[in-house]
Amino acid sequence: MWPKRKNIRLKNYDYRQNGAYFITIATYERQKLFGPEMESLLLDSYHLLERKYPYCQIQEKITMPDHVHFILTIDGEDKIEERKSISDIIQWFKGSTTIRYIEKVKAGQLPAFHEKIWQKGFYEHVIRSEEEVYQVRKYIQENPLKLALLQEEWKKK
């Protein structure tokens, strides 16, 4: 039997309220599925998410070979009770990108994947200050550089 997954969400926190959230979603078994040809599919998916959930905006974003990072902001005057939670929003995003990815695999435009595209769940961090916004943006922007430096180190070994 698999061990029970640890719940990383904040207890008694309503993930529908206005705020900024650092989101990371990894591919299933860390498959390296995402290259330049995936960028337009993801950009379209971010725009579709913003249209489907008008109180959501995708801020800083980066696509890595086996994961994506972005800042999701929720802001609006609408009733919080009528909003979807971050879990529902990310579930929709993963489903939407999976459908579109499969279409592109069938058309020979993207590589096939093993079993699934996305891992179960996602990582989120509630951003609580302007300093944190700065740090998260910096982390997202520097992520590709860190990967390139790591790959250089691996080549030397």
Rank of each mutant, 00 (worst) to 15 (best):
H47L: 14
E29R: 09
E50T: 06
I58H: 07
R5T: 12
S87Q: 14
M38C: 15
R5N: 13
Y123M: 01
I86L: 14
F113Q: 00
F113W: 03
I71E: 04
L48I: 07
T73W: 01
R30I: 00
T73P: 06
Y21A: 12
V126I: 09
E77M: 07
L33C: 10
L145D: 04
S87L: 10
I62W: 02
N18E: 09
P144H: 01
V105K: 01
R128D: 07
R16W: 02
E153N: 07
Y55M: 12
G76E: 09
Y101T: 02
I23D: 04
T27F: 03
I23K: 03
E131D: 10
L147W: 11
F34T: 05
E81I: 05
Q17T: 13
I25G: 06
I99A: 08
R51L: 13
Q57E: 14
P65S: 09
P54I: 08
Y21R: 06
S40W: 13
I74W: 02
G95D: 04
E37L: 14
Y21I: 02
D88W: 14
A107P: 09
N7A: 11
K61S: 15
P111R: 00
A26V: 08
I89F: 11
E115W: 04
S96H: 15
Q151C: 05
R137F: 01
R100V: 00
Q141H: 10
Y139K: 03
S45N: 05
K156G: 04
V126G: 04
A26Y: 07
S129Q: 01
L48A: 15
D88A: 15
K104D: 09
E29G: 10
H47Y: 12
Y101M: 08
S96I: 03
Q151P: 01
G121W: 04
K94P: 02
E142N: 12
F70D: 09
E39R: 13
T63K: 14
M38D: 15
D14A: 03
I23H: 00
H67L: 06
T98A: 13
I99L: 12
E130V: 07
E130F: 02
T97C: 10
R128G: 08
K120E: 11
L145F: 01
L110W: 09
Y139G: 03
H125F: 01
W154I: 13
E29F: 06
K32E: 15
G108K: 01
V68I: 15
G76L: 02
N12Q: 02
I71N: 11
K104C: 07
P144E: 00
L145E: 06
S40D: 12
Q141W: 02
L149F: 00
W118I: 01
L145C: 03
I89K: 07
S129E: 00
R30H: 12
S85A: 12
Q57Y: 05
P36H: 14
K94H: 04
D44L: 11
Q151K: 02
E82C: 05
Y123V: 03
F93W: 05
H47V: 12
Q141P: 00
Q91K: 14
Q57H: 15
F93L: 05
S45G: 15
R128M: 02
R30S: 04
H67S: 10
Q31M: 11
R9N: 09
H67R: 02
S129T: 03
K32F: 11
Q151W: 07
T98S: 15
K157Q: 13
